Structures are given as C-alpha cells and as structure tokens.
Amino acid sequence: MANNDCIVIKDSNDGYPLDMFCVPKHYEEDLEKILIPSGLIADRIERLALEIVHDFSHEGLVCLCVLKGGYKFFTDLLDRIKQLNRITEKSIPLAVDFIRLKSYVNDQSLDKVEVIGGDNLDNLTGKNVLVVEDIIDTGKTIQTLLTLLKTVKPKCVKVASLLVKRTPSSVGYRPDYVGFEIPDAFVVGYALDYNEYFRDLNHICIINDHGKQKYASST
C-alpha cells in the first residue's frame, strides 16, 4: 500500500535565511526565505522512490509528468527509481508520458483548469499510471486530471506530489505519495514558477511581495 506519511512543515517554521545557501543573485530581493533546501528535497525523493518500487514490485509503470512545474521532481524521482532498479532485487519496467495543465495566473488559482498540451492518453489504457505533480494546492487540478484519465481506463492510477499545501480552499484530496506538507504560502523554485520565473532556483522558497510585483503578469 502507498504510504501517506510525509514531512510536515508547520506554519511556525522559520525556514532558512537566503544567505545560508547559494541563491541566484537575480532572485535575492524577490524571496522571503528558503523553505526546503535542495539537499532535503533530494533525500526525501530517494525515500519516495523506494516506496514506489516496493509497492509496484515487478509490474510495469507509466510515469505521467504534469508539466511544466513537475519536470524537475519527475526527472529526479525517475533517476532514483532507475538507480534502485539496478541495485535491488525488485525492479519496475518504466515508461514515460507527459501532459500540460494551466491552473494559475500570478498567485491566483484559476476556476477552470486548462489542458494545454500532452500526448494522446489512449496509450494509458490498461496500464499502471503514476501521475507526478509538483504541488497539490486546492486539489482541483489533480481531480480534473484524474477524471480525464478515467476515460481511457487505466489499470490503476496513483499520484505522487512533492508538495501538498495546507489551505482552507482545499477540496480535501490527498495523493498516494507526498514529499512535504507545507503552509499556505506561495512557493517557487525546484521548477515551481511564478509566471515562468524561478524555475532555475534549486531550493523551494517563499516569494515576497516585491517578487510578485516584479514578475506579475499583465493578463
């Protein structure tokens, strides 16, 4: 069975000062603090990979990356799974697929989730599917995607999300695999963006008001 345990970052967590880690200079004025350093992210992903290999044993698995924010987590998670395939007795045959959704403008969640890119999902029929997401916020995006996936009749669908946000607007959805549960703040870095900025930041950080204004979208 999938493990719902995760690292819970409390609302009172002070995070880490920017000058304690290496942060791109062009973002120094735009961030409030580092919430999760890249090293901690890497170690947690290694554990998630171990759980996934254990759960699926020798069954084949199609890993479906939710672009764009999920690409870094997706890549690192698959690297760890492939590493485990080489060194443990259990191994999972892997295939990959991609889908792109749009659910944010600036820091506001859209009422309607848009599917704006992806392959034909018919090749997921009868397959074990692992959806790999960067963050579950309200849960509306992932529920929309899961409804879409049901129409192609996969064998089973599990969801791995690096982050789950504690927010009053949550619909209560909980993924099968969770890296970290975080406070209700807008986070960037590790491929999570704010209007396409901050994807080149290794750590997960909280953006400040200056950064939101600086990179605000006019649409």
Score class of each variant (00 low, 15 high):
M1S: 14
N3T: 12
D5N: 15
I9M: 04
I9H: 07
K10T: 12
D11I: 04
N13P: 02
G15C: 08
P17I: 09
L18M: 09
L18Q: 09
M20Y: 07
E28Q: 11
E29Y: 03
L31Q: 03
K33A: 03
P37L: 02
S38I: 10
G39M: 01
G39V: 04
I41V: 14
A42E: 08
A42R: 11
D43L: 11
R44K: 11
I45F: 00
E46C: 04
R47F: 01
R47K: 11
L48E: 03
L48S: 03
L50I: 00
I52G: 01
V53Y: 00
F56C: 02
H58T: 12
G60Y: 00
C63N: 06
L67R: 10
G69W: 14
G69V: 04
Y71M: 13
Y71S: 09
L77T: 07
R80I: 01
I81D: 00
I81V: 13
Q83L: 06
N85L: 07
K90W: 00
S91P: 08
P93L: 06
P93F: 02
A95S: 13
F98Q: 06
S103P: 00
S103N: 12
Y104Q: 03
V105N: 08
D107T: 12
D107K: 13
Q108G: 02
S109G: 05
I116Y: 10
G118A: 07
G118E: 06
N120D: 14
L121R: 08
T125A: 15
K127C: 09
V129N: 05
V129H: 01
V131A: 13
D134A: 15
D134G: 07
I136V: 15
G139R: 02
G139S: 08
K140P: 00
K140I: 12
T141G: 12
I142V: 15
I142D: 05
I142L: 14
T144Y: 12
T144P: 00
L145E: 05
V152E: 04
K153G: 01
P154V: 10
P154S: 08
C156Y: 03
C156N: 13
L162Y: 00
L163A: 08
K165S: 10
T167L: 06
G172Y: 01
Y173F: 15
R174A: 03
P175R: 06
P175F: 03
P175A: 13
Y177P: 14
Y177Q: 13
G179A: 10
D184C: 11
A185D: 13
F186N: 06
F186P: 09
Y190N: 15
Y190E: 07
L192V: 14
Y194F: 15
E196Q: 11
Y197E: 12
F198Y: 15
D200N: 15
N202H: 13
I206W: 01
I207L: 11
I207N: 00
N208R: 08
N208V: 05
K212I: 12
Y215M: 02
A216D: 03
